[in-house]
Simulated scan of single mutants.
Amino acid sequence: MERFKENILKTLLDKLDLPETAYEKAKKRYEDLGEWFNREDSSLKENKVHIFPQGSFLLGTAIRPVSNKDEYDLDLACKLRNGVNDSTHSQKQLKEIVGTELQKYIKYKGITTDLISKHRCWRIEYKDTISFHLDIVPAIPATDVKKQTLFESMQSKDTDKGMAQEASNTALFITDDRDPSYDQKEGKWNISNPQGYGIWFKTQMRTLELRAKFEAAEIADLPINIQKTPLQRCIQLLKRHRDIMFKDNESKPISIIITTLAAKAYAGESNVYIALNNILEAMPQLINSSLPRVPNPVNPEEDFADRWGMEAYSHLRLEENFNIWLKQAKIDFNTLTTSTTLKELNEISDMKFFVSLEENEIHRDLGFNSINKIASLRGPKKHIIQDPAKPWNFKSGE
């Protein structure tokens, strides 16, 4: 029975996962940017620029866009490792010098869209075989004092000392034009640590078997974005369900909260179906009743759910909608994995995930006989797929 349910989720995931060509295209684009910033006549050549992915591409949890018309979103950090610090440059100056090189890059590559300035980053929009937009965040290494503060903060939460040291060493100062000291040297800078979060996430995503092997130093450490552990798979499923339930709705649960709670809840299960059920059960208990509600594991003073309590966002009822989504996800995944006919399986997968499972795929991957056999064992029970509870601020027609 569990094997059958696992196969349903795996077949669905095959439809949601990014094609290998998308990963290759993303990798080529950020490597191309890195070469551009470090070319011989670059104004930032001496700054030893490092371009690297962050977010879902770094973690291996990216999924296909809901529609073929939608763009892939690739988040990048642009770290200047030498010659720039919080005493020599303001945030504004850092963003401008990175923007100057990006303007040259767009012109050289013949990109017809303009460079777009966002609060924390620059955006480049590609329109070719695979539509991407790249969000490039200018950054510099955080000071040693700040790194030590982060290390001590993680240690105070009983984080493994080695992991805390490794993660705190990758902390960054980033630009944000909403910051009061945006145009001031030696001003207060925002902290970000995508590489540190990746280090933490990697320790969380290992199955019990892999954890034992890592501890015994018997296997090589693989790049995080090419591993496909049950944790990564569960996050992909949860994000897609969220995307469909809250399509075009600004009150949807954000990915970093889903990812962090799922990673904390994951107990090393080797089965996606079992892991998903356990994660959905455990996630509500991992939200703190006091601030910070969902702390950043590599910066415990930062609250990923800070907007839940902000007056400016109260009209969105973000916490309420998170809880509504979580309850609906439990119902929908249960309905999906207990489907007893091909028609019912297709109905729920199409309604909740915008994915159609072809009959030949069901025969090949799930086994038509398995569905009939399970249905006969259960008797004439029929699922009724009801309309989900609407998220607050749900717009008619969406």
Rank of each mutant, 00 (worst) to 15 (best):
K5C: 13
E6P: 09
N7A: 15
T11Q: 08
L12M: 10
P19H: 07
A26E: 09
K27A: 03
K28N: 14
E31F: 12
E35C: 00
N38G: 11
D41W: 10
S43N: 13
L44N: 07
L44Y: 07
L44I: 04
I51V: 13
F57V: 05
L58K: 10
L58I: 09
A62E: 08
S67Q: 13
S67H: 14
E71I: 05
Y72F: 15
L74C: 06
L76M: 09
L76R: 00
R81A: 11
N82F: 12
N85H: 09
N85C: 13
N85V: 10
H89N: 14
Q91K: 03
Q93K: 15
E96R: 13
I97A: 05
V98F: 03
G99W: 02
G99D: 06
L102E: 00
Y105Q: 00
I111D: 01
L115T: 03
C121M: 10
C121T: 12
Y126V: 12
K127G: 07
S131W: 15
L134C: 06
D135C: 12
V137H: 06
P138V: 00
A139G: 01
A139H: 01
A139R: 00
T143R: 03
D144N: 15
V145P: 01
V145Q: 12
F151H: 06
S153W: 04
D158W: 05
D158E: 11
D160T: 03
K161D: 13
G162T: 10
M163C: 04
A167C: 11
S168T: 06
T170C: 07
I174K: 06
D176H: 07
D183Y: 04
E186K: 15
W189V: 08
P194I: 03
Q195D: 10
W200F: 13
F201L: 15
K202Y: 13
T203I: 11
Q204K: 14
M205Y: 08
E209V: 15
R211W: 10
A212T: 13
A212N: 07
F214Y: 14
A220D: 15
I226A: 06
K228A: 11
K228Q: 14
T229A: 01
R233G: 09
C234G: 04
I235T: 09
L238Y: 10
K239I: 09
R240K: 11
R242G: 03
R242Y: 03
D243T: 02
S251C: 11
I254C: 03
L261K: 02
L261S: 04
A263D: 02
A263N: 08
G268S: 11
G268E: 01
G268M: 09
N271C: 04
I274H: 09
E281G: 05
E281Y: 12
M283R: 01
I287G: 07
V294C: 12
P297F: 04
E301R: 07
F304M: 01
W308V: 08
L316T: 00
F322V: 00
K327Y: 05
K327Q: 11
Q328S: 02
K330F: 00
D332W: 01
F333K: 06
F333E: 05
T338D: 11
T340E: 08
K343C: 02
L345A: 04
E347H: 12
S349G: 04
K352T: 02
K352S: 02
V355E: 11
E358G: 11
N360C: 09
I362G: 04
H363Y: 13
N369G: 12
R378C: 12
G379P: 08
K381I: 15
I384H: 07
I384E: 13
I384S: 08
I384K: 10
I385L: 10
Q386M: 14
W392M: 05
W392H: 09
K395G: 02
